[in-house]
């Protein structure tokens, strides 16, 4: 056995990894079952910071969303972006998209198409969200934005001057944003935003990042970085919190639209599985059958696949991690067997 392991061709390891990743994807894809997530404090902090953005100023928040990544890291980061946009759109924040990566505009486009256009078609471009696109220059772009944003970003991606975009009114520099939410795949990314925006101008910053970057950014939490999502696990946790939040918020908005009092609404939004029964009670008598059906659908219907991407990927992640642990153990068995025989490691 040990002899066989000693001479193991690495292609077998590759095959094992391929199976550990693809079989769970197939099973999860066909059954739709995902593992439950328990959010860690960092993901909760990320959510809370986005949730309370703008509260201090008593206005609709201006959130600068910087998507600094490319397709190479989209597997880890796009679930974060989708959930971030989902939360901001549901909360009613104004979203200003930018990117410091040349391919970033495609990531922005994808987030807008998958979330805003599909699930929030009422949001108006130029009033609720704007795509300012990419600028070359890495951290120097942040530096200039800190002084005068409009000289760096003169137009949006469609070539419209910022002065003609309603939501750009009053936005002249980074300090006019209530929050910077950044999704980062490397350089330029979260570190640069911490250095040249959060620290220098004391603007709240939350960042989602790749697994490679996450450990390097922990020291910034919680002062310079108010929330941190690390790798696909961070994405899955955040996705889980946002999905719950969006569902609750929608339930409450339907109940409010049908004249149900705030207290009942709040109680029901915390017990979504009880809603179906509640609609048959006297309290729900004022609601029309259509409203009741909509309420039950929103409360108990399936979450759209777009917002389960991170949680789905935790399946292959589990088996691949177990394989990694097994490989390390097997590798060490070989090592100790060789050492006992007096061979070189």
């Amino acid at each position: 056995m040990i002899r066989m392991l000693e001479n193991l061709d690495r292609r077998w390891i590759f095959l094992a990894m391929a199976l550990c990743v693809s079989v769970p994807i197939l099973v999860i894809g066909l059954t739709g079952v995902t593992f439950p997530e328990t959010p860690t404090p960092l993901a909760e902090a990320f959510f809370d910071e986005v949730d309370r953005a703008g509260e201090a100023n008593g206005r609709r928040a201006n959130v600068l969303i910087a998507l600094d990544y490319d397709p190479a890291s989209a597997g880890e980061l796009s679930p974060m972006s989708l959930s971030l946009v989902n939360q901001c759109a549901q909360k009613g924040h104004r979203m200003y998209f930018i990117s410091l990566w040349p391919v970033g505009p495609q990531m922005i486009e994808e987030s807008i198409d998958k979330v805003i256009k599909r699930f929030y078609p009422d949001l108006v471009y130029g009033q609720d969200y704007v795509n300012l696109g990419f600028k070359a220059g890495s951290e120097q772009v942040i530096k200039v934005m800190g002084i005068d944003l409009t000289t760096e970003f003169r137009t949006d991606v469609e070539g419209t001057m910022l002065s003609q975009i309603p939501m750009m009114e009053g936005i002249t520099s980074l300090e006019d944003f209530d929050l910077i939410a950044e999704i980062s795949a490397g350089y330029p990314g979260s570190k640069e935003w911490v250095l040249y925006a959060a620290t220098q101008y004391d603007i709240p910053l939350v960042s989602g990042m790749t697994g490679v970057q996450a450990p390097q950014n922990y020291p910034y939490y919680p002062t310079q970085l108010k929330g941190l999502l690390g790798a696909i696990k961070g994405a899955a946790e955040y996705e889980f919190i946002v999905n719950d939040y969006v569902r609750e918020a929608r339930v409450r908005s339907i109940l409010a639209a049908n004249g149900i009092d705030e207290e009942t609404s709040l109680g029901l939004s915390k017990q979504l599985d009880q809603i179906s029964t509640w609609t048959t009670s006297a309290e729900a008598a004022s609601m029309s059958p259509a409203a009741k059906a909509e309420l039950i659908d929103v409360a108990t219907g399936a979450t759209p696949g777009e917002f389960l991407e991170g949680q789905r990927r935790m399946g292959p992640q589990l088996f691949a991690h177990l394989l990694m642990v097994l490989l390390i153990i097997l590798g060490n068995l070989v090592f100790f067997a060789q050492r006992r025989r007096g061979g070189s490691a």
């Binding site: 690495r10 390891i13 990894m17 397709p71 190479a72 890291s73 989209a74 490989l327 590798g331 060490n332």
Partner: peptide, 24 residues
């Protein structure tokens, strides 16, 4: 192309785990 190039690293990291991580 770019995303598959990066995805390949999952295989190499597994191979490295088997060959290089020794509790010396």
């Amino acid at each position: 192309l770019t995303s598959t190039m990066f995805a390949m690293l999952a295989f190499y990291v597994a191979s490295a785990a088997f060959r290089a991580f020794r509790a010396k």
